[in-house]
């Protein structure tokens, strides 16, 4: 359990790094590391390793740690951009905001009606604060790729919560979720490439022609 909590603390620290970095390539690496770490956690959570658990963990590490990051890096190369332009709120303020959100969730989680069984772990608060950080990334960044990274952090947060519910989520369904995530990122990266070609930029502030007149 201590091992598990230590890993979750690393996940939370990675959240703050993702918020405070302007090089998009570095953010991709941070999110990839976070995803791969999350793939390892189910292996620690179970005393008896069954085949479905190992398969799901392997799929998560492969997808979140390797496949999705490489799709993102390819889009990044094609777009020839390096940094996020000035975010809506600066890097340092967004780190502080993320830290405050995390601290608040950690304090607040004492009040939640948690189940007795895996109660002394950080799983629920880590999940909710990662979801919040994902939201901060999504709403304050302007480059299409950065927004996708925010979505991936959000997805990672939800994935953490899913670890509590292994009995409820059979392998087939979990694989379906991974497939959706993969196809989703694939389709989104195609669209970001088209945005880049059509607008010569990945700045989503260019996408403003559709509105009420």
């Amino acid at each position: 359990m201590e091992m598990l909590n230590a890993l979750l603390v690393i996940v939370l620290v990675l959240n703050l790094f993702a918020l405070g970095t302007s090089r998009i390539l570095s953010v991709i690496h941070i999110v990839a590391t976070q995803g791969a770490l999350l793939g390892v956690i189910p292996l620690l959570l179970h005393e008896h390793l069954s085949l479905p658990v190992i398969l799901a963990a392997a799929a998560a590490i492969l997808l979140k740690g390797i496949v999705i990051p490489s799709i993102m890096i390819r889009s990044l190369r094609a777009a020839q951009i390096k940094r996020e332009v000035e975010p809506l709120i600066g890097l340092l303020p967004s780190v502080i905001l993320g830290a405050l959100a995390t601290a608040f969730v950690l304090l607040f989680s004492k009040q939640l009606p948690l189940a007795a069984h895996p109660v002394n772990t950080l799983i629920v608060p880590a999940s909710i604060s990662t979801v919040l950080v994902g939201f901060i990334l999504l709403t304050t960044r302007f480059k299409a790729l950065s927004q996708v990274l925010g979505y991936l952090v959000l997805e990672n947060g939800i994935f953490i919560f899913g670890m509590l519910l292994v009995q409820a989520i059979p392998l087939v369904v979990e694989m379906g979720m991974f497939l959706d995530l993969f196809v989703g990122v694939f389709v989104i990266s195609i669209i970001t490439n088209h945005i880049n070609q059509a607008f010569s930029s990945m700045d989503t502030r260019m996408l403003v022609s559709l509105k009420e007149e």
């Binding site: 509590l164 389709v187 669209i191 059509a198 996408l207 022609s209 559709l210």
Partner: peptide
């Protein structure tokens, strides 16, 4: 260009919405 913009908005808003639905589904199991 306009259809790219529409698709991007649909994908991003839709994916985030659906991700929240997944969290809700997990809460329900919890």
């Amino acid at each position: 260009k306009r259809s790219i913009e529409a698709t991007w908005k649909y994908l991003l808003v839709g994916s985030v919405g659906i991700a929240l639905a997944l969290l809700g589904t997990f809460f329900l199991a919890y």
